[in-house]
Amino acid sequence: MDDARWFRRATAIFWLAFTALVLLDALAIRTYRPEPPPIALGSGQAPGGGHCSGR
């Protein structure tokens, strides 16, 4: 298989696997979460947390 063909196939596999894993996760977990306001600024609510800084 030439380089270009190999690269196209590998790219397709990467994105298919990525999409499948995200969709499986999203559809497998059923939790209720009140939807946060679209924009944090002006919402009056603190962010939910989960940042690299450890917060």
Partner: peptide, 16 residues
Amino acid sequence: APHAARLAEPIVYDVT
């Protein structure tokens, strides 16, 4: 908390 909640929720709920 809050990491346990992030792990229990669908990944699309996580900001990063």
